[in-house]
Design a binder for these strands. Structure first.
Lengths: 202, 202
DNA sequence: CGACACATGTAACACGTTACATGATTTG
DNA sequence: CAAATCATGTAACGTGTTACATGTGTCG
């Protein structure tokens, strides 16, 4: 429901047409979340279906304008007044992956953690570089502020992710009571999993 | 694509039936992301459609088992080997909301930030309490570890969110070059937004 | 002229999610 | 007996997302 409300918010500033909405949306969120133009139109259609926006005539140049309805503005106010729920948070793929990696036998958890860490580290560097550019070149436009905030959110989030990954390694070290005398060479995938699994008991 | 792969990972441990998958999934992710049973069956159907799992006969008690196919195991290996992309990250509703709040006139950004902060703070407390319980009562089961890690991810994430919100306030203070001589009393919502907006120029 | 940005739209799909129907078994 | 849990499944919907079709205007 983010794009819906995002576009609705833009329309609250006054009538806009589709293509314009995309560029304004991207100006605020930067290259982070590129928005397919087609999606603007589908979303616009759905907003109209739900009575939150309405057509607002055409330009002399043929631009098809939409405007927020009274109901749309109410919905928007409600959106801003209500915090996004952090209880029942959106499923996080990384968390699920790690939870599974830890549980399922035969998965090299350390490798998963390390791989992710490298990737997130790289992403963090990119964000930081981008921020440097944004802060030197940028002016005092409101949309520049928005873009900066979004960028910083990504930075904070990624930092937290990396810290968590490091923390996972510590936890994993604690949870290892099986020093099992490993077979000499042949590190990975030594045993072919049995074709017929043991009887499923639970 | 998180649930898909989550279930697939569980099936990699051996054949399971639908209801069982739900309970095992929830054991690892806790009450955080409750999983509607129906969704297990729909997802299972889609996994079968894509050749990643296959029916594996019935129990004497009528339980309908599914098992991962060779292709499914390959897909799973690929999932674990590939970091979840933090470039082109999933759209974050909070970030979008703030970006819009900052941009659209007539929105009390501070109120939005404060409201969110309160909410996230509350969530953080809940998570911390839960973690306390989990650590005193829990044993050394692998699924307990998974659940703990998930919880800690939520904690790290929420902490980062709160820090970011605080940071936003600082940024907002910097970006305020309009001290405008406020009307004495009447704090909130003083001006009715004009019915007819100014001509849209761009 | 050809490439490219501007501009509008549609069709189709994926995944997640909920609500509902249905029945067996257990338990207070 | 009634309520709850276990168990399987289907129908329907919503949002996000992509790919495609189409046309205009501009600029080198």
């Amino acid at each position: 429901m983010s794009i819906r409300h995002g576009l609705l918010a833009l329309l609250d500033q006054g009538p806009r047409y589709g293509y314009q909405l995309r560029s304004e949306f991207e100006a605020r969120t930067g290259a982070t979340w590129p928005l397919n133009v087609g999606q603007v139109y589908t979303t616009l259609g759905r907003l109209e279906r739900d009575g939150l926006v309405a057509p607002h005539g055409e330009d002399d140049e043929g631009h098809v304008y939409y405007a927020a309805t009274e109901q749309g503005r109410a919905e928007l106010r409600h959106w801003f007044d209500t915090p996004v729920p952090r209880t029942n948070p959106p499923r996080d793929e990384l968390a699920i992956k790690l939870a599974m990696a830890v549980t399922v036998p035969g998965v090299d958890v350390e490798a998963v953690v390390q791989g992710q860490r490298r990737h997130s580290m790289k992403a963090l560097q990119d964000y930081t570089r981008l921020k440097g550019q944004a802060m030197t070149s940028g002016g005092q436009e409101r949309s520049d502020l928005a873009w900066l905030l979004v960028l910083e959110q990504l930075i904070f989030q990624t930092e937290a992710e990396i810290r968590w990954l490091d923390h996972c390694e510590t936890r994993l070290a604690q949870f290892r009571p099986e020093p099992e005398p490993a077979p000499p060479a042949e590190a990975a995938a030594p045993a072919v999993p049995p074709k017929t699994r043991r009887r499923v008991r639970f």
